[in-house]
Amino acid sequence: MADASIRQSPIPSRKRCKNFTNKERLHLYQELLKEFNGRKLNHAAIKKYVELYSLNTKTVASIWKSGSSFIIVGASVDVSNNCTNGVGRKRIELDPEKVKNVDLRCRKTLAGLANALAIAMSQTTVYQKFKEGHLRRHSNAIKPTLTEQNKKGRLEFCISMIEGIFLTGYRLMVKFAGMFDHVVIDEKWFFMTKDAQHYYLTIDEDEPYCSCQSKRFITKVMFLAAVARPRFGGKLWFIKH
């Protein structure tokens, strides 16, 4: 029973210390002063403001002790913290020129970029700079190399889609075909299965069995798609009759 009670008892979560500004510290001291009965500050009052502001008990007690010392001396209350403007670890700034000088082959991942900047920046810092928007992710898709004949063919196709040229005022307007009578067809090949696939199974579950005639020549299926603009004329149809 003793072991069961120990397992069921909740583990107290550690409260996060919060750095109060001087204005917030003075406001907290004034609230604590209202709970003061003339002799000592009730411990329940400290616990109340610890839970209210998500502070550490030592932080609240320190603010009260600091303010009480000024009352004993008879001076004006000052519960400001002792931190100066330059405290804490210095912020690491990202130099864009250093990033640009890194080879693109080393910039495929944040870890690779961090290794290239190992002297100046760690992987965690590089990731933080990415989250802050100093770096951006780019998917670089390969582009086809167009020959002069390819460029000429594309230009001829664009010219063939012109239905007329009109002069409206001082502007020359070009009207292109609506492409209502065009159907664009494209196909995509898919493998029926992969070389290896991962599954999550239970401990006593049988492993699935998958086989094919040849691992080098896996059966393919083709998905054919046709896209066209709809036409409206009382009824809905896609191509000209």
Rank of each mutant, 00 (worst) to 15 (best):
Q123C: 07
N82G: 08
E51V: 07
A75L: 13
I72D: 11
W189H: 06
C158F: 04
K47S: 10
K152E: 09
T147W: 03
I92M: 09
V227T: 06
G133H: 08
H198C: 05
A118N: 15
H27T: 11
L146V: 02
V126Q: 02
L172Y: 02
G234H: 05
L55D: 00
F130G: 00
I92Q: 12
K40G: 09
E163Y: 02
L172C: 12
N85P: 00
L52E: 09
E24Y: 02
N101K: 15
K15T: 03
A114F: 09
M179T: 01
K152S: 10
S9G: 02
V102K: 05
L201N: 10
L32T: 01
C212I: 03
I185L: 14
A111I: 04
K175P: 00
V183K: 00
E148C: 03
T84F: 04
R107K: 15
T21G: 15
N56E: 13
A114L: 06
S211A: 12
P10S: 04
G233A: 13
Q8D: 07
L224W: 03
V99G: 06
K48V: 03
V102I: 15
L117M: 15
A226C: 14
F191N: 10
F20Q: 08
K129D: 11
F36Q: 01
L167I: 11
V102H: 04
L113M: 10
M192V: 10
T145W: 02
F238Q: 01
L155S: 07
